[in-house]
Amino acid sequence: MAEIVVVRARQGQSYRLGNALFKVGGSQTGGRFDFLVMDVAHRSGPPLHVHEVQDDTFFVLSGVLTVQAGDELVELGPGDFATVPPGVPHTFDNLGAEPVRVVNIMTPGGYDELFQEWEQLATDPSDAEVATIYARHGARPVGPPLRDR
């Protein structure tokens, strides 16, 4: 029989990278998914990147999240949803003036391990360090973040 996982409102694992709070990571879901809540600060999104096996899914709670998937650029507001399949270059950012809060689900799970590794790095890692960590977790940076476009 499966066990229920309960994570209360102020519980979860916080990470410096992306100001993310993992409610559960792959280690707690048998690798099925990661579920995290992010407060995306103004112009703080990740570089354009590709996941080899993971779907990257977003549900906006507040603010406007700008998402790039391939050549498409979309703005998502509260209640909007987007999912990016594996192999598609994508990124996201808060390009507006208001705070953005978003639920992010990664399937399959395990991407929380990338965040754990990131915590061990200096606050300004080299490009080689970033690429190495991404590669260990089935992803790779392929371009600049939206703020640099």
Rank of each mutant, 00 (worst) to 15 (best):
Gly25Thr: 10
Glu72Leu: 02
Thr107Gln: 04
Ala20Asn: 08
Glu75Pro: 10
Asp127Glu: 13
Gly63Tyr: 11
Leu114Ser: 14
Ser62Gly: 05
Arg149Ser: 14
Val74Trp: 01
Phe81Asp: 14
Arg10Ala: 15
Leu146Met: 06
Pro47Phe: 02
Gln13Ile: 11
Phe35Ser: 14
Leu95Trp: 09
Gly25Pro: 06
Ile105Glu: 08
Met106Ala: 09
Gly96His: 01
Glu129His: 01
Pro145Gly: 12
Val40Ile: 08
Leu73Ser: 04
Met38Thr: 06
Arg8His: 15
Val6Gly: 10
Met1Ile: 04
Leu95Asp: 00
Gly45Cys: 01
Asn94Lys: 10
Met38Asp: 05
Pro46Arg: 04
Leu76Asn: 11
Leu146Tyr: 04
Ser44Ala: 14
Val67Pro: 03
Val53Asn: 08
Leu21Ser: 07
Thr29His: 02
Ala97Thr: 15
Asp71Arg: 13
Phe81Arg: 09
Phe81Trp: 09
Val100Asp: 00
Gly138Gln: 07
Met106Ile: 14
Asp127Val: 07
Glu98Pro: 05
Val67Asn: 03
Leu65Val: 05
Val24Cys: 11
Ile4Phe: 06
Arg10Asp: 15
Gly138Trp: 05
Arg16Cys: 01
Thr123Trp: 12
Thr83Tyr: 06
Ala2Ile: 02
Ser126Asn: 05
Ala122Gly: 07
Gly31Pro: 13
Pro89Asp: 01
Asn94Glu: 15
Pro108Gly: 09
Trp118Gln: 05
Gly87Met: 04
Gly109Ser: 01
Asp148Pro: 11
Asp34Glu: 03
Gly18Arg: 03
Arg16Ile: 12
Val6Asp: 14
Ala41Cys: 02
Ser14Glu: 12
Gln68Met: 13
Phe58Leu: 09
Pro144His: 13
Asn104Cys: 10
Val24Tyr: 03
Gly45Asn: 07
Val102Leu: 04
Gly30Asp: 11
Thr123Arg: 09
Thr91Cys: 03
Ser14Phe: 14
Val50Gly: 11
Pro78Trp: 03
Val50Ser: 10
Val74Glu: 12
Pro145Val: 00
Ala97Ser: 06
Leu95Glu: 08
Leu76Gly: 11
Pro108Arg: 11
Ala2Cys: 06
Gly70Asn: 09
Ala135Asn: 06
Leu36Ser: 08
Ser44Met: 08
Asp71Thr: 13
Thr66Ile: 08
Glu98Ala: 12
Glu3Met: 13
Thr132Pro: 03
His51Tyr: 02
Leu146Ala: 05
Leu61Val: 12
Arg149Tyr: 08
Pro125Ile: 12
Asp56Leu: 07
Gln13Trp: 15
Ser126Glu: 06
Asp34Cys: 01
Asp112Tyr: 01
Arg136Val: 10
Val5Glu: 02
Pro86Phe: 11
Ile133Asp: 04
Leu36Asp: 04
Pro85Lys: 09
Pro125Gln: 09
Thr123Gln: 12
Phe92His: 10
Ile4Gln: 07
Gln28Tyr: 00
Arg32Trp: 00
Met38Cys: 09
Leu146Gly: 02
Ala135Asp: 10
Ala82His: 08
Gln116Tyr: 12
Asp80Pro: 06
Thr83Leu: 07
Thr132Ser: 15
